[in-house]
Design a protein around this nucleic acid. Structure first.
Lengths: 191, 191
DNA sequence: AGTTTTTCTTTACATATGTAAATGACTTTT
DNA sequence: AAAAGTCATTTACATATGTAAAGAAAAACT
């Protein structure tokens, strides 16, 4: 719980009263590797704070092909955010890549606290803004960098993770096939 | 100005007092076709509400290649948002594709109003969330749709615009070369 | 109207990446 | 230890898309 409070206050400071109310809606939970936190087609209602472990968010095409759009490492929040905001059915999957310790809360209960504590609304705004910035960075990377450069950036952004998850998940995150990632790796190891 | 107030209230209702303070920081402005609202390397400080006209936001690679990441049509806000949020140098360009009527405000002055009017902070949160959702949709489209499908979606999302801006801007928005867009158009016109 | 500039299309070629299938290396399970 | 399963690499081939350049068409300008 301290990890959560620390994270929140680093995004945007909140009062002690807000801390108490906010912490109170979270419950400890665990996710085992391959467990889903969110799946396609459901109406999402919860958010979670990741204390340990790794997860991925991905889409699946009609033909069943998966595309890893985000990799989550702690400390961070996870949620089927678009679905929570729009109240539409969820389009994405969120799945644990390793066992995770999380703190889970109901999204509606969290957002109800915004009325009571302006500082929490501000925190939420800043968090949302940071999500936007992260997405924009990722967008720039996908468009402006080659697959090889994205691979290098993945290694930098997620140190050590490469050895803990299958390579096809990394390939999918980079937007290439495992075959292509294998070619890239070969290329890098040669000279 | 009514257009702006209508837009804001549709995102998240604000009080009359907030309306007055908010409107007060905006000034009418014009952009002529090809004018830049934001350019790479500067520290951004302003936001604008677009009343009429069209704009594009784009990146430029080291080799000078451009990639249109967003097309703006009214009513909407434009800003080098990531730069405003992070206070880092701006990475993107925003340029008018057609003459535009805009309402311009200083970002800092706008955000200072959040302290005074909680409803404006909420509006800002919801706006930020909607940007996030839009970005996610775009991301899904880029990854899951073919260039041909994205072209169809462009025509649907921006009716009539195709006839008013050069095709290479559309190609860039779709993530393909003008050559490839030309091939796609030919393909579509054949059967 | 004629000239210049801009834009779109087409061609030929190069290249990156995908697909599918086979192989080999590791793990895990029994 | 053997068997089964998972994963990474490799091969051969197909394909989409990029690059560069030329030509055609359209628009803008004088």
């Amino acid at each position: 719980m301290e990890q959560l409070i620390k994270y929140v206050n680093e995004v945007s400071p909140i009062t002690k009263e807000a801390e108490d109310d906010f912490l109170n809606i979270f419950r400890k939970g665990k996710l085992t590797r391959n467990d889903y936190f969110a799946t396609y087609g459901e109406y999402s209602s919860k958010i979670a704070f990741v204390c340990s472990g790794t997860l991925r968010a991905f889409y699946r095409s009609k033909k069943g092909q998966e595309y890893n759009k985000t990799i989550f490492i702690p400390p961070c929040f996870i949620a089927a955010y678009s679905s929570l905001i729009t109240r539409n059915k969820n389009q994405i999957y969120i799945q644990a890549l390793e066992d995770c310790e999380v703190l889970i809360a109901n999204y509606t209960r969290a957002s109800e606290l915004y009325d009571k504590h302006h500082c929490l609304e501000r925190f939420s705004r800043k968090l949302s803004e940071s999500f936007f910035v992260a997405k924009e960075h990722r967008e720039i990377d996908i468009v402006l960098l080659s697959a090889t450069e994205r691979y290098a950036k993945f290694q930098k952004d997620f140190p050590g993770l490469e050895q803990r998850i299958p390579q096809y998940h990394i390939a999918s995150y980079l937007g290439v096939t495992p075959t292509q990632l294998s070619r890239i790796r070969k290329e890098l190891s040669l000279p």
